[in-house]
Design a binder for these strands. Structure first.
Lengths: 329, 329
DNA sequence: TTGTAAGCGTTATCAC
DNA sequence: GTGATAACGCTTACAA
């Protein structure tokens, strides 16, 4: 009782060979579609393999082939909608090229690459240190990064056009008859945050009459609420603009502003980034920057395949477009 | 130019052995912390391994050990928020027990189990046929299912308390002075949908004065819109109730009802299931059934670990609670 | 066309 | 305590 049932002794190519009365190499050839074998024996072997429910052992195969045809994608966490779309893009593209995709998270899974469990990695994970990526790239592993700049022969990048987006965000806000613009930043470790912040501040400098204020956030809803609180406290009745560096924080601000005198779209004009699914459902709908997450993933997938095929790979940019909604009138 | 850079010839235990002037078995012992070795030689070997940047090869190890310490979780698709919470639960729990988690999707990845790339599988994926699960279970593989009933020595289940939820949903609606209740179903293949539908209809039969109508949906926003359209068309001015078998469809209904004379919460009282993140942001906020997705995942993870440890495992149920919000007044 | 045998990188059983 | 050596399941020269 309660004793562990051993996995039924696996059927391998030697079992098939024995059944078929041939050698294991013949079986291997038959299974792998080698042309060195009679169509007749192949059929016979295939039939037996099927009857025995043969499924090749990954470890044995990988050990010999030195590849698994599996790509790993790394995210900071498992957060929502955002990743879903990317995964659809990556997954469907990899499938076309005969690769499987697995989603990984956590420090230990970083080893999948040097352990050779996966043939390549796609990274959108701030907790994955660039230094570590470099180390693996130096070992000869192929990697695509979606969240940083990294110059290496074995690494390719697919980044968002944060600069275009952030510039446009500011330009759009300042034409709204506003004298004060808050920029709610993400964490410093996040590349997207750094670039958006830097760009926004540079752009704001071009407008002398605008007072600009940075509020530190963490890309989380909670930090958005904090930022909103600060804004409410120092509000002087004049309309203000807010560029939240992601939608999550903007949504957090909504939660806070609900119980304040500031009316979104009128007293406070908010613009986010990333086009979260929620952004179109909240009231008033949130202006934001959208881009095809599917395409972003698909392009990343193409890059990793090209790297693995030894092709020359250039970096790419995913463009963003402004969605004007009610939060900015 | 463009020639594929070969992965630097991997350093293995034989390289370490050579460097250290010992045999490979000694190295293996040192690395795996065997007590048959001088602390001194161990330190020396560890140092060399570190200098050489040694990382064990997964395939070699898995081949010998016959296990990988990796668990795979299977979802129907990569859809959003819902899965994120579950993954946090599964991932953190598995980590405690020394297992890694990978997220898989797609037919071919089903083979990871018999290929022995993963030690066990957690399934929440309607496209994973029960017949296939049975087949693998019969081969001796351990599996936890979150979306069906399956009686097998090597399979354990962690299901939602759909019956409790659906019963309560109907009871709650009928006390709202309503004479007509629509049930918007999910697809037949989905266990959760079947149980919720069945339960709701059974419960509705107990109320003679209530007219009940089933509208077929697919758990998608689009199918929710279709359902709403049908309801609007036959509306006679009397308030009606709707039990949407998931929040996604309820949200789709909102989209449609926006341009109709029916006012949500007054003319049409809607209740969903699953507590999507969006449900609290839409206006009016959607009444729904919530449950801890984190816990659901955590329990599933515990089950798979227990199965792998050969322990006796019993099935489990995750309870749901009604969130009363404005969509039902 | 088929068989023999070496080897992929580990682990683990023996001897010593 | 350490070292040969045989597996693990598969692929692939090379031989027959």
């Amino acid at each position: 009782v309660g004793i562990r049932e051993e996995v039924k002794s696996m059927v391998g190519i030697r079992d098939i060979a024995q059944q078929a009365g041939v050698s294991i190499s013949t079986v291997s050839y038959a299974l792998n579609g080698s042309s060195k074998i009679t169509e007749e024996t192949r059929q016979r072997i295939l039939k037996i393999a099927d009857e025995l429910n043969y499924i090749p052992n990954m470890a044995g195969r990988a050990l010999k082939r030195k590849q698994t045809n599996i790509i790993g994608i790394y995210f900071t966490d498992y957060g929502g909608y955002f990743y879903g779309q990317i995964l659809e893009g990556v997954g469907s593209t990899l499938k076309k090229h005969g690769y499987e995709l697995i989603v990984c998270s956590g420090k230990k899974s970083h080893l999948f690459l040097p352990e050779k469990l996966i043939d390549g990695a796609i990274i959108l994970d701030v907790t994955y240190k660039s230094e570590e990526i470099f180390r693996y790239a130096n070992r000869g592993h192929n990697i695509v990064v979606m969240d940083r700049e990294l110059d290496h022969q074995n690494v390719s990048q697919v980044l968002l056009d944060n600069i275009g987006g952030a510039t446009l965000a500011i330009d759009y806000l300042v034409q709204k008859e506003i004298n004060k613009v808050y920029v709610v930043s993400g964490p410093d470790i996040a590349y997207d945050s750094r670039i958006r912040l830097e760009t926004a501040m540079d752009e704001l400098e071009r407008y002398d009459h605008i007072e600009s204020i940075v509020l530190r956030g963490e890309f989380s809803k909670e930090s958005g609420m904090q930022a909103a609180k600060a804004i409410v406290q120092e509000w002087n009745g004049e309309p203000v603009g807010v560029f939240a560096l992601n939608d999550g924080m903007a949504i957090g601000m909504y939660d806070m502003l609900k119980d304040s005198p500031l009316q979104i779209g009128k007293d406070i004009k908010i613009i986010g980034f990333d086009n979260d699914e929620i952004s179109s459902y909240i009231t008033p709908a949130l202006s934001t920057f959208e881009y095809s997450k599917f395409k972003w993933g698909a392009v990343a997938a193409e890059k990793i395949v090209q790297l693995l095929e030894g092709k020359k790979v250039k970096n790419d940019l995913i463009y963003t477009t402004l969605l004007r909604r009610e939060s900015t009138e």
